[in-house]
Simulated scan of single mutants.
Amino acid sequence: MPAPSAQSTRPASQSGTRHDPGGCVLELLRRTSRSEHEAATGRWVGERLATLLGFRYAGLYSPENAVCGPIYLIPDRTLLVDEARALGIATARDLLGGVVPHDFVGTKAITHPLLDDARAIPPGWSHGLARAIADVTLPGWSAFDLDDAAQAGRALLAQGLPVRIKPGDVMGGHGQSVAKNEKELDVAIAGLDRAAIGRAGVVLELNLKPVKTYSVGVLEVGPHRMAYFGTQRLVQNHEGAAVYGGSSLACLRGGLDELTHALSEEAERRVLQCAMRYDEEVQRAYPQVFASRRNYDVALGVDPSGMPRCGVLEQSWRIGGATPAELLALEAMHLDNRLQRIQVSTHEVYDIVDPPLGAQVSFRGDDPAAGRMTKYAIVDTQDDPHGR
C-alpha cells in the first residue's frame, strides 16, 4: 500500500482544533494479514476513538480517504520513523501507537542483550540499553540468527534455567514454547522462521513458574491522559495453547508518576519501578521513539531455585488486547472531569458466550482462524464524583 506524501495528509497536531468536524480516524494496516476478530476490534476501537476526538471514523487508510482534514491513525503495528514522516505523523497526538527508528525497536528483542560473539547484529542496535535494563528484566538473550539462538538457549540451560522461546514480533503469547533440555530447545529452534527471526529477532529468557503478569501503561488521546496498573490472565485457545485472555486494569488520570502514589504493596511498587526504568532507558537509547500508548508487560514469579524474580517481558507501542478497556476508562473520564479512578477489564473467551450486562462487545462469532470467540470490555467499578 503506497504511502502519501506528508503534504497530502493533515494530521491532527498540525491542523488546528482537535474537534474539527472534518477530521477523521483511519485504521492503517501494515501487517500482512489479520483475523476477523482483529478486524472487528479494530473497527470498534476506531469508532470509539472518533467519538472521543469529535472526529468521524472513515475505515481503512488509503490515499483517497486521507484528505478529510485532521487525521488520526490507528496502525496495526509500530511504525518506522520514515513511514511516519511520509504519512505526516509528527507527534504522539497523531496516532494510537508508536514510532521507532528501526524495526527491532518495536519488538520484544530490545529487552535482552545479544551474545558477545553474535553472528547477527542489526544496524542501530544499542548494546548499552541491555546493560542499563539488566536489573529490571529477567535473565535472557536476544538473537537474530538461529545458531545464535541455539547458543543462547544452551547458555541458560547450563545455568539450570528453563527457557521460554518467544519470536520477537508475535503477539498475545502465540508462537511461544518452553524448553527444559537441549532436545526440546533444538525442536523449538527448528520450528522458527529464519527470515522472521532475521528481521524481528527471537527472545530466549528464563521461564518463571509460577508467574503473575502485570500490565503497566499510559494512554494519551487528544487532551486525555490516563495511566493504569493491572494484571493479565491466560486462557486456552481451541488448540489447547495458553494465550492472552484479557486484562483487569486500575486506571487513574495522569501518568506513570501518579501511579507511584497509588500503589501501597511492595511487590506492586517493584513492578511499577521496573516498567518506569525500562521506559526511561529505552527513551535514552532511542530518543526518536514516541508513542501515545506505552504498555509494559512485567512478570513477577520465582525461578527453579525458589528465588523471587521480577522483570519487564516486553513493551507494546501499538493497539493491544487491553486497548478496548483502556478506551472505556478514557471515555468515562472524558464524560466526568471529576472522575479520578476507574477499574476496567477486557476479556477474550474462546467460545460464544453471553457477556455480562453493561459489557461492550467488539467480537462475538466464529473466526475462521481463531474459532469460536467472544471479546468484550467492561467497566468494573469507578470512583464517586468526588474521586474517593
Score class of each variant (00 low, 15 high):
20 D>K: 05
376 Y>P: 00
127 H>Q: 11
234 L>F: 15
345 S>D: 15
163 V>D: 10
267 A>Q: 12
359 A>M: 09
55 F>I: 06
19 H>F: 14
253 R>E: 02
217 G>L: 05
7 Q>T: 13
263 L>Q: 04
222 G>S: 12
121 I>D: 08
137 T>N: 05
270 R>A: 15
212 K>Q: 15
300 L>D: 07
156 L>Y: 02
279 D>I: 05
291 A>G: 03
250 A>G: 09
280 E>M: 07
221 V>C: 09
351 D>G: 07
100 V>P: 01
66 A>T: 00
44 W>N: 08
247 S>M: 05
258 E>R: 05
330 L>W: 08
64 E>D: 11
83 E>N: 01
276 M>R: 08
109 A>T: 00
326 E>C: 08
383 D>Q: 05
34 R>E: 12
170 V>Q: 11
223 P>H: 09
53 L>R: 03
27 E>A: 15
347 H>I: 01
372 R>L: 09
222 G>R: 06
26 L>R: 03
69 G>M: 08
22 G>Q: 12
25 V>P: 03
139 P>S: 13
285 A>F: 02
323 T>H: 04
200 A>D: 12
46 G>L: 10
331 E>K: 02
175 G>E: 05
49 L>H: 03
288 Q>C: 00
333 M>V: 00
167 P>A: 09
140 G>N: 08
235 V>N: 09
262 A>N: 02
